[in-house]
């Protein structure tokens, strides 16, 4: 377990992290979600012990072994998949027999077995990430730290990376994983929302959606009316937020019935599709916390 107490990290006069209180290693998969520049990598590096906090404390419990996969590909590109695993196994002091067994097991899990002799540099993005994860869990660490393992990876491989993370967790390793794809929060047992160095929330995924305070209505096929409706809806007191999402129009309501009636009225008047209720998405959840923390004054 790693405990962070009032951790602040500054680079020059820029505050990357601001008063973070956090315990890692208590839940199976602990997700760290936030946009670029939120401080995700800094937090990861503090947890891994690669950085010292400017203020506050980072305490690693005695005997907690770590695995760490940095954002940049940490494997030797000119060495083969098997050679890389061998090397990291020896680095972690695994005895020969165990190393061999563990390698075979991991190659199977990651579906990398057919590529064991391929140079690591020639693998696709998703396979590289899986190799890096395999190398980091060779020694069965208590806690695995993953810094944006799915960044820039195609959706199919991304799904595979998450499957691997889940099986690592099932083997008894706790995982702390960061991502900039908000919707990936759904794979986690607990989710931290991080924005501009501040911890907005640290809860279970279900809790975020359950207590989302604004029922969400969606008007389908509204692309022809969006520019006309949006300014009007935003002035409505019963509307907390309105935005267009492709052909849909999404509206958060303070008063669900009133807003539904309003939308249905508008739909009838002009060419627009059905009005439907929708569960809030992760982007909705994140924006809600940004609003509530007065972080709404963004650039756009």
């Amino acid at each position: 377990m790693i405990r962070m107490k009032q951790v602040t990290k500054r680079y020059g006069n820029q505050t990357a992290l601001d008063g973070i209180d956090l315990t890692l290693g208590e839940s199976g998969i602990h997700g760290l979600v936030g946009p670029d520049g939120a401080g995700k990598t800094t937090l990861m590096k503090l947890a891994a012990g690669l950085l010292k906090p400017t203020r506050g404390k980072v305490v690693r419990e005695q005997g907690t072994s770590l695995g760490y996969v940095p954002q940049s590909f940490g494997m030797y590109e000119e060495m083969s998949v098997a050679e890389n695993l061998h090397f990291y196994g020896r680095l972690n002091g695994l005895p020969r027999r165990e190393r061999q067994e563990r390698m075979e097991e991991l190659l199977r899990w990651t579906d990398l077995a057919p590529f064991a002799d391929r140079a690591a540099g020639s693998l696709s993005g998703g396979m590289k990430q899986k190799l890096a994860i395999a190398a980091a869990v060779l020694h069965r660490p208590h806690l695995l730290l993953l810094d944006e393992p799915t960044n820039g990876v195609d959706p199919l491989s991304r799904r595979e990376v998450w499957e691997l993370i889940c099986s690592v967790m099932r083997q008894g390793t706790r995982v702390f994983v960061s991502t900039q794809y908000l919707e990936e929060a759904r794979h986690c047992d607990r989710v931290i929302l991080l924005f501009r160095g501040r911890l907005l929330a640290d809860r279970e995924p279900g809790a975020y959606r359950e207590d989302f305070p604004y029922p969400v209505w969606v008007v389908r096929d509204a692309s022809s009316v969006r520019m006309k409706w949006l300014p009007r809806l935003r002035e409505e007191p019963a509307v907390a937020q309105a935005y267009s999402r492709g052909t849909d129009l999404v509206v958060w309501s303070r008063d669900a019935d009133k807003v539904r009636q309003l939308l249905e009225g508008l739909s009838r008047e002009e060419q627009a599709g059905k009005v439907e209720a929708e569960a809030p998405g992760w982007e909705d959840v994140f924006s809600r916390y940004m609003m509530e923390n007065g972080k709404e004054e963004t650039a756009w």
Binding site: A38, S244, F286, E296, T298
Partner: peptide, 21 residues
């Protein structure tokens, strides 16, 4: 909008839709 927060992204798209219109 790679790696941009959702609120910023939303206003970006508002602008884009405006231009398209």
């Amino acid at each position: 909008t790679s790696g941009v927060d959702p609120v910023t992204r939303r206003s970006f798209w508002d602008l884009l839709y405006g231009l398209a219109e």
